[in-house]
């Protein structure tokens, strides 16, 4: 199974991954549409650990996958090439059950298109990985 792995100690919170993700998938720079999410916590204290400051959240491409299991249309399937989970746009009806079910809050509902969006590993060469200036993201096959 291939998935994105993030290193929160190295991440410096630039959000270039969010920008490039939305640009690649939606054709515009718009972090609210990104399928990767960086959480920034600068209100730190003496007990804050280095991995709690800039925290990347990525799709875990779970196996078994709660999103695929709950989908009433069987619209979320494992891609044979990337081994990631893909949304079949023509079968998804945008009911949003998977959005609720995802334990990592990594699926977005696109109300306009009546579909959901999630990380598709860019078809095998994720742009967030290649653009990350800190090498805080990698694609791992385990």
């Amino acid at each position: 199974m291939a998935r994105l792995v993030a290193n929160p100690v190295v991440c410096s919170g630039c959000k270039i991954c969010e920008l490039i993700c939305s640009f690649w998938h939606e054709g515009e720079f718009n972090p609210s549409m990104a399928r990767i999410r960086i959480e920034i916590n600068r209100s730190i204290g003496p007990d804050t650990l280095p991995d709690q400051i800039d925290v990347p959240h990525v799709c875990e491409q779970c196996d078994p996958a709660p999103c695929a299991q709950i989908c009433p249309e069987d619209a979320i399937v494992r891609d044979s090439k990337t081994k990631g989970l893909l949304v079949k746009d023509d079968e998804c009806v945008g009911c949003g059950l998977c959005v609720e079910e995802c334990p990592f809050d990594m699926i977005l509902l696109n109300e306009e298109k009546e579909t959901v969006q999630k990380c598709d590993l860019c078809g095998g060469g994720p742009l967030c990985v290649s653009f990350c200036p800190r090498d805080a993201l990698s694609l791992e096959d385990d």
Partner: peptide, 27 residues
């Protein structure tokens, strides 16, 4: 220094998140 931090869309994190650990200004 506790952490290197970037501005938005910046590949060069010159920002340094700092914490005074000891002395009168600790915290």
């Amino acid at each position: 220094v506790l952490h290197d931090e970037s501005c938005f869309s910046c590949p060069l994190p010159c920002g340094k998140l700092s914490l005074v650990k000891t002395g009168p200004y600790a915290g």
